[in-house]
């Protein structure tokens, strides 16, 4: 008890000191950057640090940073027991009371829903079709987010259990009855990216509409794609036609969005591409064409393209090799001695 109070006091003092140091550091930074220290925000701090301490370190977590101490030092729980040393929470001795409370609540909700379902069946009623939960645009909190919410460290297994229980709860026919409980642990996605800012096509001197997509990236390839409408299905890649690619697979990839939208004979495509291999270049052009075609198709087709994954940028890159092992994931052959 006394030890706890001492530790809490120590922590408070430490935080106060850190806060003080942070404020002073912020003022110094503002002076160095020649700006007003009073209106210097965290965003300006990040910018200043990036400017004054440029770093090319691969791992962003290892680069220099200056964040407010509340973000750097994880939040600690307040006292969980009374003067006599008796814990407030009934699950205190599990070690992770908030997490297990969450599991208990979920299980209880499942039982309640099942009882409710039994009741409805006995009355011979049917479930309300409008009450269904719409979970399409949201997803479960990630492990880090859940840890922050619960102020407890979780293992991977515990996080999996959380997901399992919640999925079970959601799968029940009357899950809309505990909507509030479920939505506490779901995070909404950012709104539909593909529908935002569809560029209006410009017109060239022949009166044909055209849209240019810059920065078409895939693997190490980059380039730009111009789509002209109306056209006759002419494809130009770096001054050549589709035979720029020698293998069939890459050619198929380039015409994939055109075939999908049914515009293969109605638009002309022109692209400049460099870097990477045939597969990466074809992937970059595929994305560029799909992205540019947004200006020439209707809303239904736009949705179909999104569901087909054509509008998703493939941002995956080659994973780096790690020291002490022969590849990115591959480990040396195990030897007894």
């Amino acid at each position: 008890m006394r030890a706890y109070l001492e530790r809490a006091k120590e922590h408070d003092e430490f935080m106060k000191k850190q806060q003080f140091e942070y404020n002073i550091g912020k003022r110094h930074l503002a002076n160095m950057m020649g700006e007003d220290p009073e209106t210097f925000t965290q965003k300006d701090v990040d910018r200043a640090i990036e400017y004054l301490f440029p770093s090319g370190i691969y791992d962003p977590a290892a680069r220099p940073l200056m964040k407010p101490p509340e973000e750097v030092f994880p939040a600690r729980k307040a006292a969980e027991f009374d003067e006599a040393g008796r814990p407030h929470h009934y699950l205190f001795y599990t070690g992770k009371p908030n997490f297990f409370k969450l599991l208990y609540d979920a299980a209880e909700n499942i039982q309640l829903l099942q009882q409710f379902e039994d009741k409805v069946i006995r009355k011979k009623a049917t479930p309300d079709p409008n009450g269904k939960l719409d979970l399409n645009a949201t997803f479960w909190l990630t492990k880090d987010q859940l840890e922050q919410l619960l102020v407890e460290k979780l293992t991977d297994l515990e996080y999996d259990n959380f997901k399992l229980v919640m999925e079970r709860l959601v799968s029940l026919p009357y899950s809309y009855r505990c909507k509030d409980f479920i939505e506490k642990f779901r995070k909404s996605l950012t709104s539909q990216k593909f529908a935002l800012e569809i560029p209006k096509p410009s017109y060239d001197d022949q009166g044909r509409a055209f849209v240019t997509t810059y920065e078409c990236l895939r693997k190490k390839a980059r380039g730009d794609v111009t789509i002209r409408s109306p056209g006759t299905g002419l494809i130009t890649i770096n001054g050549k036609d589709l035979t720029y690619f020698e293998d069939t697979q890459s050619r198929e990839q380039v015409i994939f969005p055109l075939i999908f939208t049914g515009l293969e004979n109605k638009v002309d495509v022109e692209c400049n591409i460099e870097g990477g291999g045939p597969s990466g270049q074809a992937g970059a052009i595929r994305w560029g064409i799909a992205w540019g075609l947004r200006s020439f198709v209707d809303k239904d087709m736009l949705e179909a393209m999104q569901v087909a994954g054509l509008l998703t940028r493939d941002h995956r890159r080659r994973e780096r090799k790690k020291p002490g092992q022969p590849g990115a994931r591959k480990k040396p052959t195990w030897k007894r001695r």
């Binding site: 719409d134 399409n136 645009a137 996605l189 539909q192 697979q249 198929e252 990839q253 015409i255 994939f256 075939i259 999908f260 597969s279 074809a282 992937g283 994305w287 239904d300 736009l302 949705e303 179909a304 999104q306 569901v307 087909a308 994954g309 054509l310 998703t312 940028r313 493939d314």
Partner: peptide
Amino acid sequence: QAKLIENNDLSKLATTPFRPPASYETSSVY
């Protein structure tokens, strides 16, 4: 896709993120 359009699931699904098709997959009849 035709099945989705029949069931009117398309606009509901379009709000979720999708992976891009792999480099060997196309919607071509071949």
